[in-house]
């Protein structure tokens, strides 16, 4: 009985390893047709679902035709995009068409799938989110750990942590109906675009980042802070010269962890990024990110387009795995 339970516990612990390995292997196998066909060129190819016939002139497959001309055509129909509701409906309807269209076209010509647009969309939206979230999260963390008196810091701290628990779909829905229109009033353009997606993503990771950063800052021993104050240092100098150097690793680690979370976030972005294969030439262009491509197209795809989607999923998995491992092993390793 004892040895039996011990074996069982070993097996359970190994499932973690097995599942992660299985995810990698299964995604690789599923993506293989696309990997073999496009190789690493997939990463720099901006066409998605475009058939190229023998004359090598690209034909846009009926994918998302309603809203955008898919490739290198930034004369986007702003009016249509303006009405976010209409647009999203149109996209969903078109997905079914697209799946059918792609299947037909495969027979007489070559369909090209490339991941450049979703990859760029993912990176840019995450970048905007980080630029927006880092200063605010730092501000909140400084406020909570150094400025606010305990009777304010405590409820605000709890509020921030609770807000980190709100499902991401709520952030997305709020972004679609309230924040997107609000931003479009200020900067113009449509209410679903790269900028809105990045900002909503930023707002979503603020609570997560702030509470982790605050925790790191709180690990600074009081003795250090007090000796600095005793030398006549101001609060800012203590924060800058004592707390930051001491908690640097933890703070950077928290930021990267939040970055990893932003990279793979689906629902908060899916509502507000536009979901169209369009290379963003300016911040207010609608585009698409890897998780959103997966969310919108996965169920209706098959064959080569499905393999291409698995290729994207694999890329996302590997990138976030590297980012998170980097944060964990390089910056947060002292904790354990």
């Amino acid at each position: 009985m004892e040895t039996l339970f011990k074996r069982l516990s070993e097996i359970s612990a190994s499932t973690i390893l097995l599942i992660l390995l299985a995810i990698f292997v299964v995604l690789y196998i599923q993506a293989k047709p696309a990997i073999e066909k496009y190789g690493l060129h997939f990463l720099v190819e901006s066409k998605w679902g475009v058939s190229v016939d023998k004359n090598n002139t690209p034909n846009v497959v009926k994918e998302k035709v309603n809203n955008t001309s898919t490739i290198q055509d930034d004369t986007l129909d702003e009016d249509l995009a303006d009405d976010s509701l209409d647009e999203d409906i149109a996209i969903e309807d078109d997905d079914a068409l697209a799946a059918a269209g792609v299947e037909k076209n495969t027979q007489n010509s070559d369909v090209v799938y490339g991941g450049l647009i979703p990859i760029v969309g993912t990176i840019l939206s995450t970048l905007i989110a980080m630029i927006f979230a880092v200063p605010i999260a730092m501000g909140i963390a400084i406020f909570l750990s150094e400025i606010a008196p305990p009777f304010i810091a405590k409820p605000v701290g709890i509020a921030i942590e609770l807000l980190a628990a709100i499902p991401s779909i709520i952030y997305g829905m709020w972004g679609l109906f309230y924040f997107g229109p609000f931003i479009s009033k200020i900067v113009g353009g449509s209410s679903v675009n790269l900028l809105v997606a990045g900002l909503v993503l930023g707002i979503m990771i603020i609570p997560f980042m702030a509470s982790l950063t605050r925790d790191s800052m709180k690990t600074t021993p009081n003795v250090l802070k007090e000796s600095a104050y005793a030398m006549g240092a101001t609060k800012f100098e203590v924060i800058k010269d004592v707390i930051f150097p001491y908690a640097k690793q933890g703070i950077i680690g928290s930021m990267i962890l939040a970055l990893g979370r932003a990279l793979g976030e689906t629902m908060a972005v899916a509502f507000v990024i536009g979901g169209v294969f369009n290379f963003p030439h300016k911040l207010t262009d609608p585009t698409v990110s890897i998780p959103v491509v997966l969310a919108n197209n996965f169920a209706e795809s098959s064959g080569l387009s499905l393999a291409a989607l698995f290729y994207l999923a694999l890329i996302l998995f590997v990138i976030s795995f590297i980012v998170i491992s980097f944060a964990k092993f390089y910056f947060l390793r002292d904790k354990k």
Binding site: L20, I23, L27, Q30, L309, A313, F321
Partner: peptide, 16 residues
């Protein structure tokens, strides 16, 4: 690390 893996990727895995 797995705790922070993108949930949609887990969805694609289970789909497969």
């Amino acid at each position: 690390v797995m705790m922070s893996a993108p949930s949609i990727v887990i969805g694609t895995f289970v789909y497969a």
